[in-house]
Amino acid sequence: MHITNIISQYFGKFAKTQFPPFIQRVINAGYVKFLGLNMSEFKNARYYKSLNDLFTRKLEINREIVSAENEFISPTDSFITECGQIKEDTALQIKGMEYSVEELLTFYCTDNFSKVKEGSFMNFYLSPKDYHRYHSPCEFQLKKLIHVPGKLYPVNLKYLNKELDLFVQNERVILECIDTNGKLFYMVFVGALNVGQMVFEFEPKVETNIDTAEIKVYEYEDIKIDKADCLGYFKMGSTVVMLWEEDAVEIESLLNEDVRFGQKIATFK
């Protein structure tokens, strides 16, 4: 097991510990103040029983969602570190740092790889202060989930600029999806340092950050996900990569911008 996984496991144990109420309130208040969390859409920090509860907090106020059927919405509150066109299998983790989309998706996606190797991509970085739940960007049919064990390097801007193939090296969960136009897209959830777990509410069998090298694949016939449905959550910040089939969407120009779950990020072609 890589040192990053060991560090993350120990941090995960701390984060899920429920300390006596007074101590937990101090921990939560310190976390909110240190990171400058905006808690206006959530319960007061004192009501969360552990750091994990605070990290994975639910929205208490309904978010305004772009309802147009021909538009993708952001699945997360995050920062767009890169976006654009995939060129002959190559996408960017950040400017000047390329990676192979085929390696990211693994050979379990080989049958569909030709559809996305010249498509579009967008990278969503969630910092520790962000809302940590991820949602469906549109109505879609879920075809496959692939869990790929790996390292847990940080995914912040410093590491994106220095660690080659970071997304390919890190643990990840890949969702293979078909939108209402019959077009293919992928959502890739990338683990990171101190991410004790990535949780998927529709598939409780997925266990991340455990001592295994086995890739696990789950295939589905009848799972339909509605737009804005909660898919799950990171236990700390991390990254989501979206990959679209060639000529499927027109993505918005959002490079180096903050986005919020619910806002428009792409339009069906």
Rank of each mutant, 00 (worst) to 15 (best):
S40N: 14
S74C: 12
T180S: 10
F234Q: 01
Q24P: 02
D258P: 09
A192Q: 07
F22T: 11
N181A: 11
M1W: 09
A45M: 11
Q24D: 09
K16F: 08
A266R: 04
Q141V: 09
F55A: 05
K205A: 03
D130C: 05
S78V: 09
E257C: 09
Q24A: 04
G84I: 04
A228S: 12
D222R: 07
D229F: 01
T106P: 04
G262S: 08
I73D: 00
S120F: 12
I73A: 04
D130R: 06
K16S: 06
K151I: 13
V259D: 03
Y233R: 13
V32C: 07
Q197F: 02
V148I: 14
D179M: 05
L152P: 02
F11T: 09
Y125M: 02
V66S: 15
Y220F: 12
K115T: 09
Q93R: 03
I23H: 08
S136V: 08
K13N: 11
Y10R: 11
G232P: 02
F167A: 00
K205Y: 04
E221I: 14
F113Q: 14
K13I: 14
L152R: 05
T4S: 05
F19N: 07
A91N: 01
V173M: 09
I80F: 03
C177K: 06
F121I: 03
V240R: 00
E102C: 05
T56Q: 12
K151G: 07
G232R: 02
T212Y: 09
S74I: 13
L105E: 00
K151R: 11
E201I: 10
R133L: 13
F200Q: 04
E102W: 09
Y233M: 10
L142E: 08
T212I: 06
V116I: 14
P137R: 14
I3E: 08
N256H: 12
V190P: 02
G30Q: 06
S78Y: 08
E176A: 01
I146C: 09
V148P: 03
E252L: 09
E250V: 12
L59C: 07
E252H: 15
Y134K: 00
T106A: 01
N70A: 13
F189G: 02
K151D: 15
Y99R: 02
V259E: 03
N209K: 05
N181S: 10
Y125A: 03
Y47H: 14
G12H: 07
S50Y: 02
